[in-house]
Simulated assay, not measured.
Amino acid sequence: MVRSQEATITDAERPGPGDQLWSVFEFARRYRLAKREENRLLMLYGPTASLHVLLANAQRHSLIS
């Protein structure tokens, strides 16, 4: 039995009527995320997610250590 990704999304993460849906690829490019972080977001949410969810869960790693 295969579970759809829609079934794994909680009600808190499901976009509401006023939420903007963004392409994860476009979000990663605009916010200059590393490819690894882009792939992590793709695995979590698929190709699109609400802007609110992406901003809350994206992690940027500093280039200065």
Results as ranks from 00 to 15, higher is better:
Leu41Arg: 03
Ser4Val: 03
Leu44Trp: 07
Arg60Trp: 08
Ala49His: 12
Phe27Gln: 02
Leu33His: 02
Phe27Trp: 14
Val53Lys: 03
Glu38Tyr: 01
Ala56Asn: 05
Arg36Cys: 07
Arg30Trp: 02
Ile64Ala: 13
Arg14Ala: 11
Ser4Met: 08
Ile64Pro: 02
Ala49Tyr: 09
His52Phe: 02
Asp19Glu: 05
Phe25Ile: 09
Ala28Arg: 09
Glu38Gly: 08
Arg32Pro: 00
Thr10Ala: 08
Ile64Val: 14
Ser23Phe: 07
Val24Pro: 15
Asn57Leu: 00
Arg60Pro: 08
Leu54Lys: 00
Tyr31Val: 02
Thr8Asn: 06
Arg32Thr: 03
Gln20Met: 07
Asp11Met: 07
Met1Lys: 04
Pro47Asn: 09
Asn39Ala: 13
Arg36Asn: 06
Arg32Ala: 08
Glu13Ala: 10
Leu33Asp: 01
Arg32Cys: 04
Gly18Ser: 03
Arg32Leu: 10
Leu41Ala: 09
Ala56Val: 00
Ala28Leu: 06
Val24Ser: 15
Arg36Trp: 06
Val53Cys: 00
Ala12Tyr: 09
Tyr45Gly: 04
Ser4Ile: 12
Thr48Glu: 12
Tyr45Ala: 02
Gly46Ala: 02
Pro17Val: 12
Gln59Phe: 10
Ala28Met: 08
Ser62Cys: 11
Glu13His: 14
Met1Tyr: 07
Leu63Trp: 11
Gln59Asp: 12
Ala28Gly: 10
Val2Glu: 06
Glu38Arg: 07
Ser23Lys: 11
Ala34Cys: 04
Arg32Gly: 00
Met1Phe: 11
Ala7Lys: 15
Phe25Gly: 09
Glu37Asn: 00
Ala49Gly: 02
Thr8Asp: 10
Asp19Gln: 00
Ser65Lys: 14
Ala12Arg: 03
Arg30Ser: 09
Trp22Gln: 13
Leu55Met: 03
Ile9Glu: 04
Gln5Met: 15
Tyr31Asp: 01
Ala58Ile: 01
Glu13Pro: 04
Arg3Phe: 14
Leu21Tyr: 11
Val2Gln: 13
His52Lys: 09
Ala28Val: 04
Leu51Ala: 10
Ser4Arg: 08
Leu42Val: 05
Arg40Asn: 11
Glu37Cys: 03
Val53Thr: 00
Gly18Pro: 00
Arg30Thr: 05
Ala56Leu: 02
Asp11Ala: 11
Gly18Ile: 01
Lys35Leu: 11
Ser62Lys: 13
Arg30Cys: 05
Arg60Leu: 11
Ala56Cys: 04
Val2Lys: 15
Gly18Arg: 05
Glu6Gln: 09
Glu6Ile: 10
Gln20Lys: 15
Asn57His: 13
Leu41Met: 13
Glu26Thr: 11
Ala28Asn: 08
Ala56Thr: 02
Glu13Cys: 07
Glu13Asp: 15
Ile9Asp: 01
Met1Ala: 12
Ser50Asn: 03
Pro15Leu: 00
His61Gly: 07
Ser62Glu: 13
Lys35Tyr: 08
Pro17Glu: 05
Pro47Met: 05
